[in-house]
Design a binder for these strands. Sequence first.
RNA 1: GGCCCGAUAGCUCAGUUGGUAGAGCAGCGGAUUGAAAAUCCGCGUGUCCCUGGUUCGAAUCCGGGUCGGGCCA
Length: 285
Amino acid sequence: MPETLAPLFVCGATASGKTAYALRMADELGGEIVNGDAFQLFRGIEMLSAAPSADEKTAFPHHLFGVLEPGEHCDAGRYFEMAMPVISEIQSRGKTPVVVGGSGLYLKFLTHGPSPLPKGNEKLRAEMDARTLEDLLDELEKIDPVEAAQVNRGNKRYVSRSLEICRLTGEKVSELRDGWERKTQELEKSLRGVWLIRERADLHERIAQRTRHMLSDGAIEEVAALAEVHGNWEKAIGVKEIRRFLSGEISREACEELIVFATRQYAKRQETWFRRETWLKRLEV
RNA sequence: GGCCCGAUAGCUCAGUUGGUAGAGCAGCGGAUUGAAAAUCCGCGUGUCCCUGGUUCGAAUCCGGGUCGGGCCA
């Protein structure tokens, strides 16, 4: 495989301008776009997830956009399994995959390989969700005290996940978990990607604009149409807020404002994530 | 014009019998190994509207202003 066909990862906070930049790079490198966004995978929430428009998709082939039904479950592992064949298929045709997205964990699986740990188990999770955090910590303490000491003890999600792995494998998570760090050294030398950095005030302005258009151009209708469909997609920013608006609980203005707040906070979390991906080339835009 | 209510963090407001103030939201920082747009953790000095007074001590009590809001003319 020629060096030049290595995927180019285009990362950055939401509304930082990834889509436009990726198109430019696809043109420059002779590339095709691959979705690296957890929510743009779903069909039916294109406006809500700020997926590329039909117009934007005409110039170059786009992959993995709108490929899942809203009711389907997805996680980083499944994304990895969907994306890898797509990437090699693009390369086999002599094109460069340009992976665009802001979902840090999903991209991490692509760049650093999937975790060797077992995938989530719905039944176990439902069971653990019903228990208290203290209770879960007690059990983890007994099974794997090392993990109990290092896990984020205030985060029930993470405590549950640790316990889930122990239960599923019959072993201690703390011993199973071989860090991404270990293979990081050599691996990251072969990765190429950019992190689009935008000044905070500018980013906030773009988020406000984007939210306004999203609401007036169909996001509300998308959420209304999927009222009966439950699944991963409901965790998208805006769903909770739009539902409150649809039920008459809050005004349209309040709805918009709450989505802007949530999106800013998400953008901040993305920046924190990408800051640690030191192999990414920083690009101030 | 008269009477009443309000004025405390960027916003909405708490503040017990006077001991110089704290919540939610926002904002800022961080974490992140198969739910990740998820989930979690940390960060609170602000002329307590101004001005006189009472008091050892006033966001708190009293007088006079200013600016909102309401009622009566």
